[in-house]
């Protein structure tokens, strides 16, 4: 039998076209919410590997040449929300986590 998925938070905790931070198994995770998209929630690590602080959930989201990105609020580098890649620095990369929405719940895994 499939193991029940862990509940992270409710969808009403998310902010459309913006980010919030959740603590999942001791790890800080930035959750971005795009209500219109097929995959409406994206999760990456909240740690900014360049700015060295837990801040990515507070960055501005958008797209650059078709890639869904968040801009670091510290030094403005862009990270691809689907792959975790940094557009300006190929040494820097974010962890990307699978999340999904069921009913009004954000689920981990």
């Amino acid at each position: 039998m499939e193991k029940a998925k862990q509940v992270v938070c409710q969808t009403q905790d998310l902010i459309p076209n913006s980010g919030v931070c959740a603590l999942v198994n001791g790890k800080q995770v930035a959750l971005f919410y795009f209500p219109e998209d097929d995959q409406p929630v994206r999760a990456v690590s909240n740690w900014d590997p360049i700015g060295q602080a837990n801040v990515l959930s507070r960055g501005i989201v958008g797209d650059l040449k078709g890639r869904l990105v968040v801009a670091s609020p510290l030094y403005k580098q862009h990270f691809d929300l689907k792959t975790g890649e940094c557009l300006e620095d190929d040494q820097a990369k974010l962890e990307v986590f699978p999340v999904s929405i069921e009913e009004n719940l954000v689920l981990w895994g």
Binding site: I15, N17, S18, V55, L74
Partner: peptide, 19 residues
């Protein structure tokens, strides 16, 4: 308007280097 603001404007305070 929330999604438009830089973090400083979103949280009405100035972000420093450690967040």
């Amino acid at each position: 308007h929330v999604q438009l603001q830089d973090t400083n404007d979103t949280f009405l305070a100035n972000m420093q280097k450690n967040g």
